[in-house]
Design a protein around this nucleic acid. Structure first.
Lengths: 189, 189
DNA sequence: ACGGTAATGACAGTTACTGACATCACCGTA
DNA sequence: TACGGTGATGTCAGTAACTGTCATTACCGT
């Protein structure tokens, strides 16, 4: 550890979310965020590749949880059932944080095109990893990619409904409901 | 029209694709693209919001085609059937261009994270418009969003398979096949 | 001939991001 | 206890994406 205040990474994340929420993403400079966190701008970019990434600091952990759950699904599970288990794991992890904080983060993302782009890219990254996990379960292309992509779509739709308050249930329940809706759409349509 | 060489927009698009393909996206500066097109850097940014957008110049037209086809689907069509008609329209439009040019463009996009992000954002934008068109057909949420998102996923997966040469059939056929795969995955899984 | 207009050029300025080097506390070890 | 290695940070210069503003110029209708 360094000799300065510890947790600079966490402080940067909190400062960024606060500033983005206060005055908007593009009105907040990296230098300002760093100053609020008590470090220099250079340190900001040592911890995060760019201004967007600071809001997605936990994505690697989330990805690992999802992939592990998919890989650990019972042998008999169908591809989409395995994906559903991954989504449940994601919901459990995301549900740990306060709904209020998640809602603030999601509000900033929804309000900022650049951040929405990044969120989509993260989900696409998860989808690729899930597809690889499905390959490991013997699922072939393009079924693996389609199941993974469909699952991430379900997660995103559910997350939006949950964070916006449109659905008051627990995130896990919202995810389950959205997955059921997807099945309904694709089986009858 | 202006008094200089016309078609500056098209020239910029061609110059950008060529330079991105030659030396990579981040090794090509906006100034270089503009110079090759015979204009100044400022003109580049008058035609395109940023360095990425120059590869997505036809997206508004494509979006219109998709939405129109969805809206014009027969009354009895299910949501996913309507979306399928939109995908067919997209495939028809994209199939007009030479497969070689499309493949070059797709190769650049696949090789560049920033461009992949933008492509995902474009597809998400199409999905939102398609969902709105489905609303106009009486489809409610979340079925409309899920059908639209699933459709755009199918389009993306099919486009990758087609442009990469993994599937030698016409784009329309590849799209149909991917849609059938999605139905298979979600009905049995 | 003339005034309006749309596209472009010219140019200064901000800011995201990078590379290179210096600095400083901590830690193991002699 | 002194000492060298290490990791995180500071400092500073530099590139390039993008923006605002104003001047310029051909075309077009009257």
């Amino acid at each position: 550890m360094g000799r300065w205040e510890p947790d600079s990474r966490r402080r940067l994340q909190e400062a960024a979310l606060a500033l983005y929420a206060e005055r908007g993403y593009d009105q907040a400079t990296a230098a300002e965020i760093a100053a609020r966190a008590g470090v220099t701008e250079r340190t900001f970019f040592r911890h995060f590749a760019d201004k967007r990434e600071v809001l997605f600091g936990g994505s690697a952990v989330l990805k690992e949880h999802i992939v592990s759950a998919v890989a650990a699904a019972p042998r008999g599970a169908t591809p989409l059932e395995a994906v559903s288990l991954g989504l449940a794991a994601a919901a459990a992890l995301l549900g740990e944080q306060s709904r209020e904080l998640s809602a603030q983060r999601q509000a900033v993302i929804v309000a900022t095109p650049e951040l929405r782009e990044r969120e989509l890219a993260k989900l696409a990254d998860y989808a690729a990893a899930v597809a690889a996990a499905l390959h490991g379960r013997g699922v072939t292309e393009p079924q693996a990619s389609l199941a993974a992509e469909a699952g991430m779509t379900v997660l995103r739709v559910a997350l939006e409904r949950w964070a916006s308050g449109a659905d008051r249930r627990d995130l896990g329940k919202v995810v389950e409901g959205s997955m059921a809706d997807l099945r309904g759409v694709t089986s009858t349509g």
